[in-house]
Design a protein around this nucleic acid. Structure first.
Lengths: 215, 215
DNA sequence: TGACATACGGAACGCTGTTCCGTATATGAA
DNA sequence: TTCATATACGGAACAGCGTTCCGTATGTCA
């Protein structure tokens, strides 16, 4: 999404960032690296060699490691940026659509966000310390956003309120790593199935399924 | 599950196996390697070095590569074996329980099967040719098994028949890679939610949800 | 028993991530 | 502006990985 907008997201900081002053060239390197890494990862996958990112960014390998202690830190930095972007869209949709529609719309949008991060899925659970804070970051940003959407829909009587936002976040996130011929359609169907699950027993139940019943 | 039973599953063959005769020691190496690799992967993760498997199996590295052209082939071989085991259980459960119960039971069993293969999830979509046939193998074995379970439950009027077995297989498989503090409970809840989705609009709908509505 | 195809073992290769350190540069004081 | 110094940069070098290669050992069949 978007162009380059000289991204200065504060969340993308991998290092401690302990109040100290950062030299201008270092800051520039960090930004360039995040920007470049995002593209390289999109092109060659998250397994792309660090050297490839370094070369694409026009910096030496030492510079990469000075700004990101570990390869995983670089990956995590890129990830954080994209989380920010997706969360922002949640608020926008919530403002622009009716409760249940906004919920459905964002859930499917979130689905696409995750789909571009299949390679990360396994890394997240690899025990690498650089990824340790990612689940928290993920949750702290996504959960409130989804909670708001769910809340509106529940208050409107469209869904029952027995499902935890974080549960749904994880479930759809996991669902969205699916790939294959018709993965996009598959994911859409499964998310709709989950939404039907939410509507099962709701005040206004049976008002219509999320998608046509038959193929 | 099970002990060692000198496993001779025919499905675990990575090579072409073109009718030719195989020397006894080679056959033994293949079996030992699969057996050992399974344990090593369970202990050190699927990322365990090939050398570690070789050492644990008491063979040289060259032997591993003679029996499994690629590291991925070894991983795939282990995977196939475990698919066989899980599919077998599906039939057993179907014979021993009422339709909807058997379905639910196996779905949760399947969940545990997948949970031990988190590391594989990303590898499957890595484009590695050794994994290319795995999705087919997976589907060819699991789909009929689940289809039978679903069919029984649908005929009993417990669920609607609008959901494709393979869809469900993939969905739950993806759901089951979840990890974290309460991942087991989370997965259980989400599978139940999916099952409720199946029951939404069924002949005997509203006969009771798969799990208590509230926490 | 012998001959030959086959399998075995492990040194060696190329590609990773990562470390190290001499060199270059930004920053703040004079 | 000029200098001193902390900081950042670049890339050679190292360790660990998957994989290849080939001399040696071992089944198999006559």
């Amino acid at each position: 999404m978007s162009q380059e907008k000289t991204a200065t997201t504060e969340a993308a900081k991998p290092l401690a960032t302990k109040g100290k002053k950062v030299r201008a060239d270092a800051q520039r390197s960090t930004d360039t690296l995040l920007e470049t890494a995002k593209k390289v990862f999109a092109t060659s996958g998250v397994d792309a060699p660090v050297r490839e990112v370094a070369e694409a960014a026009g910096v030496g390998i030492g510079t990469v490691y000075r700004n990101f202690p570990t390869r995983a830190d670089l990956v995590a930095g890129v990830f954080r940026r994209e989380v920010d972007a997706c969360v922002a869209e949640a608020a926008e949709l919530s403002d622009a659509h009716p409760p249940c529609e906004a919920l459905s719309l964002w859930l499917h949008r979130y689905t696409q966000f995750i789909a571009t991060k299949k390679g990360l899925a396994s890394a997240l659970h690899s025990g690498d310390p650089a990824f340790a804070t990612l689940p928290d970051y993920f949750r702290e940003n996504f959960e409130p956003a989804l909670a708001a959407l769910l809340d509106r829909a529940a208050k409107a009587g469209d869904i029952n309120d027995s499902t935890d936002p974080y549960d749904l976040l994880r479930a759809i996130g996991n669902l969205s790593v699916a790939s294959g011929e018709d993965s996009a359609a598959h994911i859409r169907r499964m998310v709709d199935l989950l939404i039907n699950g939410l509507r099962f027993g709701a005040v206004d139940a049976d008002r219509g399924m999320a998608t046509p019943k038959n193929a």
